[in-house]
């Protein structure tokens, strides 16, 4: 129980991911003086970013965030990706099966799922900065970054923040012995049409209908794999494992 709560607290700050398949059109290339890039014109509400995430065991994975206005997609692995809409809906997509499950606001509430939309949209919650002290301003590639340092969850941490797009350039939790490190590796513009294309032609089901759809082989498979409810929390621990909704009780197993 304590571990689950701790994981939930950590996850509200951090979003580890697994892998993704994406083609970068412009890359952040580091140089001795920072990052040298082919600087595209970026609009904070219409872009795609990819982070390389490294945990304390040296394991690495990637996460992608794609914004379309106030809607955004987060992809953590090739099997699924998730969309959060401005209406407060959460949609989990299964690209191989071309199926999706939509959790409407009422469904999320009924499941007692709570999330920090700001943290998801910005990868690292902007509120974090208020608990840290400013350090130096650096030009890294295309971006002017503001440095922050301070304790996060009891660990000395460092944040390089790109204010123009509201995202971290790098965030390191546990500065002397890194627990988790997020590093921006790709950033590019992403159009509304391209965004819409990502979610086209999926056969969608409301989460509310799952209970009446257990004869659906896809739903049965997803339930057995624990995707349906666990996916709804949107939170993952430092091993990339989904954390159950807060309304769950005990050690929910699948």
């Amino acid at each position: 129980m304590k571990n689950r709560l701790l994981a939930l607290i950590l996850s509200s700050v951090l979003l580890p991911t697994l892998s993704l398949s994406a083609t970068a059109q412009s890359r952040m290339l580091e140089s001795n003086k920072g990052t040298s890039v082919d600087c595209p014109t970026l609009i904070a509400e219409h872009l795609k970013v990819q982070y390389q995430v490294t945990n304390g065991k040296g394991q690495q994975w990637e996460m992608t965030l794609i914004r379309n206005g106030q809607d955004f997609i987060i992809q953590r692995d090739a099997a699924t990706f998730e969309q959060w809409t401005s209406h407060g809906e959460y949609v989990r997509y299964f690209p191989v099966e071309k199926r999706s499950v939509t959790y409407r606001k009422g469904d999320l509430r009924a499941l007692n799922v709570q999330h920090d939309r700001d943290q998801l949209y910005h990868v690292v919650s902007p509120k974090l900065q208020t608990h840290m002290v400013k350090t130096q301003v650096q030009q890294l590639g295309c971006f002017e970054t503001q440095g922050f340092a301070g304790k996060v969850n009891g660990l000395e941490s460092q944040l390089l923040w790109i204010d123009t797009i509201g995202l971290p350039y790098q965030f390191t939790l546990g500065a002397t012995q890194p627990n988790l490190d997020y590093k921006l590796v790709i950033v590019e513009p992403f159009s509304g049409d391209a965004y819409s294309a990502l979610t086209q032609d999926f056969q969608d089901i409301d989460f509310a209908d799952v209970g009446d759809s257990e004869s659906d082989p896809f739903i049965a498979k997803m339930i057995n794999q624990g995707f349906i409810e666990h996916g709804s929390s949107g939170f993952y621990n430092s091993e990339g494992q989904a954390i159950e909704a807060q309304g769950g009780h005990g050690n929910h197993s699948h």
């Binding site: 129980m1 509430r109 009924a110 499941l111 007692n112 409810e229 909704a245 309304g247 769950g248 009780h249 005990g250 050690n251 929910h252 197993s253």
Partner: peptide, 26 residues
Amino acid sequence: GPGAVVGVRDDLTSVDTQNKDFMQQA
């Protein structure tokens, strides 16, 4: 249902079970 207990049951002493978002145990 989704509120089922596997292993140790949560202690509800300080939980607001009358909150409309509370998920009943199962």
